[in-house]
Design a protein around this nucleic acid. Structure first.
Lengths: 355, 355
DNA sequence: ACTTCTCGCTAATCCGCATTAGCACCGAAA
DNA sequence: TTTCGGTGCTAATGCGGATTAGCGAGAAGT
């Protein structure tokens, strides 16, 4: 007869109201005890204890959405990647970031929300508003070579705390953490120069991601600094697999090029192409020519000779990103640190062959 | 003087209320137009158009927190692993699950919250109530060989939607998805029998995880079915590295054993020990004896000959787990599917040597 | 002309939590 | 006895949107 709502009784997670009932206090009090009580309202220790016990007994956990809505924070950090976060194919590329992110987030008491849908055409991938969902979290990390700049800009302009993993200063006000590709790439070229190489070629993808342009810049700067010829020193290959062939390689060799440097990308296409071309040409590195990789080799090429180049401290970058984000959340201060990469001697580069 | 709140006026994004004002309709109408309008309420096309235009003009984007709050579900799935979710060392063991989980979650429009045994709330890690944190998500996936059964039971009894990756029927009411280790292991043994092996030994860890006992069962069943001698057919090695030696191997060989099967575990210890013993004994597989691995080889052993055995469809398992969880959330129905493993011919097993 | 129906739209609530205002009580000061 | 100042707690409200109940007005039926 009466319209009692007991049907909802055991439905879903316990609310503060239920904790309140069990503890014999008001919902407000529960909120005060469980939330920070930043208002400095005085509560009797016994009440406090009762509430805590009731909450534990019921297994109460605050609803993150409600917390956010009430203009508070929910201790959730988002991670949004523009290429799938767990892509089968490029396994090794992004995973290490998460290692660092996860650890550092734990240190700061945050849980991680992985925003999916960026990957694998999920429920609403590609939708123009897809980025907005990250607002559920207190702040968010963004990851990927290509990022929808306008959407991200909107978030940032509205004051949403965001940190990009990877340099990205063209986007005013966006905090980021980046690897110092310029310096790391320059160092690789300097080493090659020291080994006697007078002409070096960089093979990069035909793409203007900061990660690529930074590497090119480093290479060019080092060439300049060493007084080397930078003519045709950079090759943009739209499709490395077809552009970088044994013939092409021989051609460059006859021009006096003795060292080839490839940039690392998600797919490692440039490096793969280079290795294939060298093999096809029946040549050997580092005997006939030197090779270097501006980054880490793809996982499936692990058994190949270790490439000369540098390692990107991915876990460290992930951790730095979390630190930047928590700082942003706490103080509102934007910081964009540049993390150094470690030179990796490897064994694909050697002294330049005598002319 | 007056305590007007205009400070918040131009703050942040537009609300539905503002869109409504601009379009000259009510907030409800805006919600109807912009939201799904699952109620099938009839709206005039013109009204609809006006609202859409107003929304576009203002650049309206719904607040995900509010949306989720009103919907009484936050579209979050938890992933809880009892070993760190992102362990650098055992990288390959759990990672593939996540690949499948992430993709399938995206398909269903869920985002992921990552909980790890270690992190779970930096503030109060290790607390016995650590598991309660997962209640933050609509439902949760559990992952790991060893799981605190009583804590999990509490959650399940409270009606919390949980799915375990890996068979686990001893826990009444818990849904799980598992690989069919019994059948897969049996098949491996059947193949060995077909190759003429009359005595087969399984090397397993001294541990009662379902994943181990299932494999043993499959092996025993296949031995029985083939009418083979199952005496001493199973060896429990607390520490495979010291128990499985070249001497031990020779001993078994003289007893007539011609094939050795190892189970796969996080560390791959049993398989490693077996390989080492064979090498130490100066023997060769598959010439002198046959080897098989009930699972996939550890990543660092990739360059070794491909083990005969089976592959665990980890990504598929992850995806199946998400499907089971979403079904549980939607219909309340618990399902526990068993996913088949694919036999991997490999090249460590061959015909039994003539006696 | 009077009841019924749609059709189109809106007022009122609720979701779960945080915050604001303020109430009831009690001992101390006047 | 009245007033005052804490102390300890709660009612009420709002965040932004989804949902439910239901209200006018014109069309249709009788």
């Amino acid at each position: 007869m009466t319209e009692h709502p007991p049907a909802k009784a055991r439905r879903g997670r316990p609310r503060q109201a239920e904790v309140a009932r069990l503890a014999g206090v008001s919902q407000t009090t529960v909120s005060l005890v469980l939330g920070g009580n930043k208002q400095g309202i005085v509560l009797h220790p016994d009440t406090r204890a009762r509430v805590l016990e009731a909450a534990k007994e019921l297994g109460y956990v605050p609803d993150p959405a409600a917390r956010r809505l009430a203009a508070a924070r929910n201790n959730l950090l988002g991670v949004f990647s523009f290429t799938a976060t767990f892509p089968t194919a490029v396994e090794h590329s992004y995973y290490p970031f998460l290692v660092g992110v996860e650890q550092e987030a734990a240190v700061h008491g945050y849980d991680l929300v992985l925003f999916t849908g960026s990957s694998s055409g999920g429920a609403q991938a590609g939708t123009s508003g897809a980025l907005e969902r990250v607002r559920l979290a207190d702040g968010c990390l963004f990851l990927g070579r290509h990022v929808p700049a306008d959407e991200l800009r909107r978030l940032v302009e509205h004051g949403y705390p965001a940190v990009h993993i990877g340099r990205r200063d063209e986007l005013e006000g966006l905090a980021w953490v980046g690897a110092d590709y310029v310096e790391a790439s320059a160092e690789v070229v300097r080493r090659l120069a020291e080994l006697g190489h007078r002409r070096v070629v960089l093979v990069r993808e035909d793409d203007d991601a900061p990660a690529s342009t930074d590497r090119e810049r480093g290479v060019r700067e080092a060439l300049d600094a060493a007084g080397l010829d930078a003519t045709d020193a950079v090759v943009r290959a739209a499709d490395p697999a077809t552009d970088i062939t044994a013939d092409w390689l021989r051609g460059r060799l006859t021009e006096g090029v003795t060292a080839f440097v490839a940039e690392e990308t998600d797919t490692g296409a440039a490096w793969r192409a280079l290795l294939a071309a060298v093999e096809d040409a029946g040549l050997d590195a580092p005997a006939d020519l030197s090779l270097a990789l501006l980054g880490s080799p793809p996982a499936d090429l692990a058994e190949r000779p270790e490439p000369t180049g540098f390692d990107i401290p991915r876990a460290e970058l992930g951790a730095a990103a979390v630190r930047a984000l928590t700082t942003l959340l706490a103080t509102g201060e934007t910081e964009s640190p540049l993390v150094a990469c470690a030179f990796r001697p490897g064994n694909t580069a050697g002294p330049a062959p005598a002319p």
